Simulated scan of single mutants.
Amino acid sequence: MKKKIPVVFFIMALMGILGYNFVYQDHRDIASIDATSSFTTSELTALLTDDDASNDVRALDQVIEVSGIATDVKTTSITLNGQVFIELSNAHDTEINQPYTIKGRCLGYDDLLEEVKVDQAIFINSPN
């Protein structure tokens, strides 16, 4: 019986370590990942609002590039063509009515606000 206690303790400790590493995995670094697809704002909105759910796989939870004209600008967010809301990874100096290409993770379409959500975004091409 006394020989089984260290073995059981070792197995429990090993399971705890493996479980901790599984739950607390490193996050994806969007800046270092190549984009799977490139869209304009109207193409991305049309893709996510159509009735064919198989099209959503091309964009949802994927690293994508989105191009459009800035219609609303905040310190850490930008809206392109009033259709795609993008949360930036870092504060960036942006201007309204300028074209931008941005890479980020597509979260999906927000029915309430009627816009596509993208987060962890970085600028690929900007006029500045």
Rank of each mutant, 00 (worst) to 15 (best):
102 I>D: 03
120 Q>W: 12
98 Q>K: 14
124 I>T: 08
37 S>A: 13
103 K>I: 02
77 S>W: 04
91 A>F: 00
51 D>I: 07
51 D>E: 14
65 E>C: 06
9 F>L: 15
114 E>Y: 09
47 L>M: 12
55 N>Q: 15
97 N>V: 05
25 Q>H: 10
116 V>I: 12
125 N>E: 15
117 K>A: 11
57 V>A: 15
28 R>L: 13
73 V>K: 02
67 S>R: 05
68 G>N: 05
94 T>W: 04
75 T>H: 01
37 S>F: 09
6 P>G: 04
98 Q>V: 06
83 Q>A: 11
16 G>S: 00
114 E>P: 05
106 C>Y: 08
5 I>Y: 10
2 K>C: 01
112 L>R: 12
128 N>K: 14
122 I>H: 05
12 M>S: 15
48 L>P: 05
59 A>K: 10
89 S>E: 11
74 K>Y: 08
76 T>W: 01
83 Q>V: 01
46 A>S: 15
32 S>W: 04
24 Y>P: 04
98 Q>M: 12
125 N>M: 04
8 V>C: 11
13 A>I: 13
101 T>P: 02
82 G>W: 04
17 I>R: 00
62 Q>F: 07
80 L>V: 01
25 Q>E: 07
90 N>G: 03
70 A>D: 04
49 T>F: 10
2 K>S: 13
102 I>Q: 00
52 D>V: 15
66 V>G: 05
94 T>I: 09
104 G>N: 02
96 I>P: 01
76 T>S: 12
24 Y>G: 03
12 M>C: 15
75 T>W: 00
28 R>D: 11
90 N>C: 00
7 V>G: 03
86 I>H: 02
85 F>I: 01
77 S>M: 05
37 S>H: 13
68 G>A: 06
41 T>W: 00
58 R>L: 15
67 S>Q: 09
97 N>E: 11
101 T>H: 01
48 L>G: 08
109 Y>P: 08
69 I>L: 13
73 V>M: 00
39 F>Y: 15
